[in-house]
Each structure stands twice: as structure tokens, then as C-alpha cells.
């Protein structure tokens, strides 16, 4: 009997962009408001992007394509990108064509393109049609256990945490004031004694496609 051999490279990525760096061009989150639509409802789509030149900001996609199924339309209006939920009858027809149960939500993937100072960025987002849902609330933050003011003021060894974290939510932190430890958890520590002023952000996701974020100025003293 052959033995399973598993191999892991024990190396770090010292000189490549880290997932928490706000200076690296990337899509931070795609938000539909709301994330799941009842029949005939209208949802709005926007994208949180960042890059070295302009930092984090809401951006309007240059293109959104509905990959499947047919009958779902996304349009660009003066107010931004909108998605129109089909009627109850149309949704029933889509369910039937896909072989879904009568009460199942129809999950539709969207292919999104958004421009950054470093070129086009590609993202994918799904929207549920059938039962309405809401995005989670934007988090509030604690610095070393105390509520933050209008900005995060921290020391190099401080911790910053989401107030009242929820186990069902996932968290992703971003920073332009130095390295972060624990950036996929509800609390982070700074890991850079030379840090100064910049931005600190956290994106919150639920398991149904809902998303919210909080981005704040931050000053980290050595």
C-alpha cells in the first residue's frame, strides 16, 4: 500500500504584496444592496477598490456581465449599476428550467470589471433572487479594549478589535500603517514599530453574500 505524501513549502513571501496592504491594487469587496432580492425588487451594485495612487474608495464597475441564467438583467443607470429581480412568475420559470425546488433561491453569478490606477480588476459576485436579505451592519472598533474616537490612535503593540464580534461573520482587515497579525480574525495587532499615519479598514461578510465595511484614519505610535 502506498503512503500518502503531502508536501508543504515552508517559505514566506517576504517581498510580495500582503493581503492586508491597502497600497496594492485590488477589489476589497463587491456589495449588492440588498444582497438577496425578493421578486420585482431592485438592487444596487458597488465595488470597494483600492490602489497605491488613490487608496480605498467606492468605484463604479466598467462592466457587469450576467453569466447565467438567461432572463436576469443588470443595467448601468445614472445612479450606478442596478439589478432587477424577475417577477415571481419569471423566477418560477427559471427554477423550473434549472430543476430547482419551488421555494429555492436562484443564485446568479455576476462577472464584474472595475478600473484601478494599475489597470482593470476582475471580480465575481453572486446575487440570490427569491427571499430578501440584508447586509450586515458596519462594525465598530475597540482599540486596546476601549471604543475608538473619530480615528484609531494606537501604539505599535496595540490590538484593534471588532466590538461584539459574531461567530457566523468573517472579517478581513486592511492597513496602510504597517503589518497586521490576525487579519482574518475579529481582532488584529500591529506588527511594525515604524508605523505612522494611514488608514485601517475591516470588511465583514456573512454566509449569504452580505457585506459591510469600516475604513478609518489611523495613527500608530512607535
Amino acid at each position: 500500500m502506498k503512503r500518502i505524501v503531502l508536501v508543504f513549502g515552508l517559505v514566506g513571501c517576504a517581498d510580495v504584496p500582503q493581503p492586508f496592504e491597502l497600497e496594492h491594487a485590488r477589489v476589497m469587496a463587491v456589495r449588492t444592496e440588498p444582497p438577496a432580492l425578493a421578486p420585482d425588487a431592485v438592487g444596487r451594485i458597488d465595488v470597494l477598490v483600492t490602489d497605491a495612487e488613490r487608496g480605498p474608495r467606492l468605484a463604479e464597475p466598467s462592466a457587469i456581465v450576467v453569466t447565467a441564467p438567461a432572463g436576469i438583467e443588470v443595467t448601468q443607470t445614472a445612479a450606478g449599476w442596478e439589478v432587477q429581480s424577475p417577477s415571481a412568475d419569471e423566477l418560477a420559470g427559471v427554477r423550473a428550467s434549472l430543476g430547482f425546488p419551488a421555494d429555492a433561491d436562484v443564485i446568479v453569478p455576476l462577472a464584474i470589471t472595475v478600473e484601478s490606477s494599475e489597470g482593470a480588476l476582475a471580480a465575481q459576485k453572486t446575487i440570490a433572487f427569491g427571499t430578501a436579505a440584508a447586509n450586515p451592519s458596519a462594525p465598530t472598533l475597540l482599540v486596546d479594549g476601549a471604543p475608538m474616537g473619530d480615528r484609531v490612535e494606537a501604539r505599535a503593540d496595540s490590538s484593534v478589535a471588532v466590538a461584539a464580534p459574531v461567530a457566523e461573520l468573517s472579517y478581513r482587515w486592511f492597513s496602510s500603517v504597517g503589518d497586521l497579525i490576525g487579519y482574518t480574525t475579529s481582532a488584529v495587532r500591529f506588527d511594525d514599530p515604524s508605523a505612522g499615519e494611514g488608514l485601517l479598514g475591516v470588511v465583514v461578510r456573512d454566509q449569504a453574500g452580505g457585506v459591510a465595511w469600516m475604513i478609518t484614519p489611523a495613527e500608530v505610535a512607535p
Binding site: 477589489v27 476582475a122 465575481q124
Partner: peptide, 13 residues
């Protein structure tokens, strides 16, 4: 050749 950001699971494909 490239990667697409999967917003729902916060991961790149």
C-alpha cells in the same frame, strides 16, 4: 494567466 476575485468567499480563483 490571471485571477478573479471571488467576493463572496474573499478569495482569488
Amino acid at each position: 494567466m490571471g485571477a478573479v476575485y471571488q467576493s463572496d468567499i474573499d478569495s482569488y480563483l
